[in-house]
Nucleic acid binder design. Structure first.
Lengths: 239, 239
DNA sequence: CGTTATCTTGACCGTCGTCAAACAGGGTGG
DNA sequence: CCACCCTGTTTGACGACGGTCAAGATAACG
């Protein structure tokens, strides 16, 4: 279950068990509930066991930007390992379960089992890479490509952990949340979805999205999965 | 000199010397030269000894987004420690010197001296935090606040390493680069600079910028330096 | 069934982009 | 020393992409 963590770095069975044997507290959340808040000084890290979560920042003017999406199996407050104060909110998107692990335990584990520490580091770096791609997306792509890119990324990411109903998926978010992730308004997201649909690039029933012409969508989205670093090509282990 | 690295994490003298004693290759760059390219599989990391650098990504349509800025003293290709292929370009902004260190050496050092590994981790996390703030900035703030925010961040960051000529600084970049960092066009950057100047929020002669009313600028920019994690409040060391 | 959140659609407007030209400054070479 | 060019800055006119406001249509939910 938590083994999805090993998507990026090869972890031995022992490593996995070591993680699973850590003391943790399991909490259940409903949809749209806060997990951590900006300004919190947390001494715990979380692992998302099931469901979806997202990270957001808010402008003084009240505008919201969703800065990351998290899928079941991904760690949540990894920042807290060394930074004392959270610089953004973490919230559930859907109902979700989160396993909280004490920072000290995690640090110790990383010390005794380098492969585990490595796995966390990879996760961190991939998240940073995704943030950079989002920056490009929000800063430089027009709405249609921007939305298409998001849909592609989501497709690839959930397929990597086997959560997709093949050929498509149901988006776990409202159009308003979609807009907040893309730097658009919900109204414009709605219209742009319509454009993609009219162009035969997506099909949808309610929140379910399918991709009748994946190749063309990728092209429109200017999507390449290089930045997701899915190939597991983790650097050679230390000497 | 390289000691600026320790801005975020307390490093002992020994740690610093251990870093300095690593074998490295020093390279000198002119302005606007590539340091690493997307797709490269580098086995080296760099430390920016002097000058400024930036990271960029390019759209298929040719639009550029600058996704990060690097100041003298900051590490450059830290991603390469565990990720095999670079997902973005790194280029010099001004003339600069870069010390290249082999990945293996860095990994070994991080193993033998936990404080050093910790320092790198903090750097990584702070960079990720900055990326999130940029995402908020580009996605949700109008041009005036967006530009003001950038100017504030730059002021605080270079002051943290003592590179500012007190009360202001000279921006090491063209308005076009500024636009590419902010998701704007150079034309609009120019006009927005004019607006800030007309409002008495900044003064400028050529590329030198001064801040006659720092408090008001901060307010307009909606700037809080929390996300820069400058307070050195690094989490308690491992048990 | 009523109540609420979400989606959809329309009309209108503004911020920002595009295209283009003029201008300033700094190097270079004749 | 001046003509020349190249890069960067500034300014104008115009247009478009996306935002705002508001209303109606669908669903979800008690």
């Amino acid at each position: 279950m938590v083994r999805k963590l090993s998507v990026h770095a090869a972890l031995s069975e022992e490593d996995c068990e070591a993680i699973l044997s850590l003391p943790y507290g399991l909490r259940t959340f409903g949809p749209e509930e806060p997990i951590m808040r900006e300004g919190d000084s947390a001494d715990q890290c979380g692992v998302l066991i099931s469901g979806f979560a997202y990270r957001q920042k808010i402008t003084a003017a009240g505008a919201r930007q969703i800065v990351a999406l998290n899928i079941a199996g991904e760690p949540l407050g990894l920042q807290n390992i060394v930074l004392d104060v959270a610089d953004h909110d973490v919230r559930t998107l859907t109902a979700a379960e989160v396993a909280f692990i004490r920072r000290a335990d995690l640090l110790e584990l990383a010390n005794t089992r380098p492969a585990v520490g490595r796995a966390f580091l990879v996760k961190l770096l991939v998240e940073a890479s995704i943030a950079r791609e989002w920056l490009l997306n929000v800063g430089r792509r027009p709405a249609r490509a921007r939305l298409a890119h998001f849909l592609c990324e989501f497709a690839v990411r959930i397929e990597a952990v086997g959560l997709n109903d093949d050929d498509g998926y149901v988006l776990p978010m409202t159009q308003e949340q979609l807009g907040d992730a893309l730097g658009l308004t919900s109204v414009h997201v709605n219209r742009t979805l319509g454009v993609l649909e009219a162009g035969g690039l997506i099909e949808r029933h309610k929140r379910e999205v399918r991709f009748p012409d994946w190749k063309r969508l990728r092209k429109v989205a200017d999507f390449s999965d290089l930045y997701l670093h899915l190939n597991r090509q983790v650097a050679a282990t230390a000497p």
